[in-house]
Amino acid sequence: MEGIGFIGMLAGIVVLFFLFLYYVPVMLWFSAIVSGVKISLVQLVLMRIRKVPPSIIVSALIEAHKADIKEVDAEQLETHFLAGGHVTSVVHALVSAAKANIDLSFQMATAIDLAGRDVFEAVQMSVNPKVIDTPPVAAVAKDGIQLIAKARVTVRASIKQLVGGAGEETVLARVGEGIVSSIGSSASHKAVLENPDSISKVVLEKGLDAGTAFEILSIDIADVDIGKNIGAVLQIDQAEADKNIAQAKAEERRAMAVAEEQEMKAKAQEARAKVIEAEAEVPLAMAESFRSGNLGIMDYYKMKNIEADTSMRDSISKSSPDKPKK
């Protein structure tokens, strides 16, 4: 029993020792003192209690001290960490900016970091410009020929514009718009192919980097290809549309003519029906005249003779005049 109690006590001492080392990082404090960073054990213990990793803060302080950056202290770094920032990235950015003679304060660096941008990458891009390839941009010259251009945009990060400035997407969109405008204002596609750097000059003069987080250093046209003959395509489409309109109008006129013909036939049939109806009433009228005594038998024969004579004259008039007489 005494052996078990001794082992339990020993285990408790070991656990307490490691808890002590966790909350009181003596070795970390000693490393800071050796590096010339003034920080107390109490500060490190309070960092543990506030759930701030002391190793990150101490490492950042040592890096800043070795780079002779005096505006950084433990309280500022701890505040930035609790705000959700990246302490290591901020200190790296401050050191790089100091070595490159770039004016970057701790407040500006933390603001850029909390804005969601990689401040260390921004400083690197400010020192080493970045090349952005634009997607193919299609535009049509005044002669109707389509050109497809690709450009390479060399940009440098603008530290002062990183907070609230537009990103790469805006720069690419503005460059694409400038290329379309430049090609569209060209009188001929041949002029663009002969002098593609004219596009770069026109686009650069527009000041496309205003309000962005970058400074455009150069715009180089990497490739220009000939696309479709848009003017000819439009003319073909217009001719096809005119032809369809003409066909539709002709079909409309034909339908109207057919309708008029049918209407005339209907009227002719109606007239013939009325004539037949009138002719059917003639015998009845003649019979009534015979009964009433208004028409005699001699009158009837005279009328028949007149009809026969009229019929003969009609047959003679319808005969051909070149036909020899027998």
Rank of each mutant, 00 (worst) to 15 (best):
V14M: 15
A151I: 07
E168A: 11
P129M: 12
V155H: 10
F120M: 01
F20C: 06
V26Y: 12
V224T: 09
V58E: 04
L284M: 09
A100Y: 00
A241D: 14
K325Y: 15
V192R: 02
F30E: 13
K318Q: 11
L82G: 06
Q107V: 11
Q76C: 01
G231E: 12
R254D: 13
M125E: 08
K160W: 12
I145E: 02
V137K: 14
M312T: 00
F81Y: 11
A287F: 12
E307W: 00
P283S: 06
S289N: 12
V131M: 13
W29N: 07
M1R: 09
S198T: 07
K201N: 07
P135G: 15
I49A: 03
A250M: 15
K201I: 10
T154Y: 02
Y301C: 08
I316C: 01
L104W: 02
L147E: 04
V171Q: 11
V171P: 10
I112T: 00
S185Y: 09
I219K: 06
I236Y: 08
I56E: 14
T310C: 03
V45P: 01
E169V: 10
E71R: 02
F20I: 04
W29L: 08
I57Y: 09
A166K: 09
G85T: 03
D133F: 11
K302N: 04
G5H: 05
I230M: 13
E168W: 03
G84Y: 05
E177A: 06
S319G: 13
A11Q: 02
V131G: 07
K325T: 14
M298G: 14
E205A: 15
A255H: 09
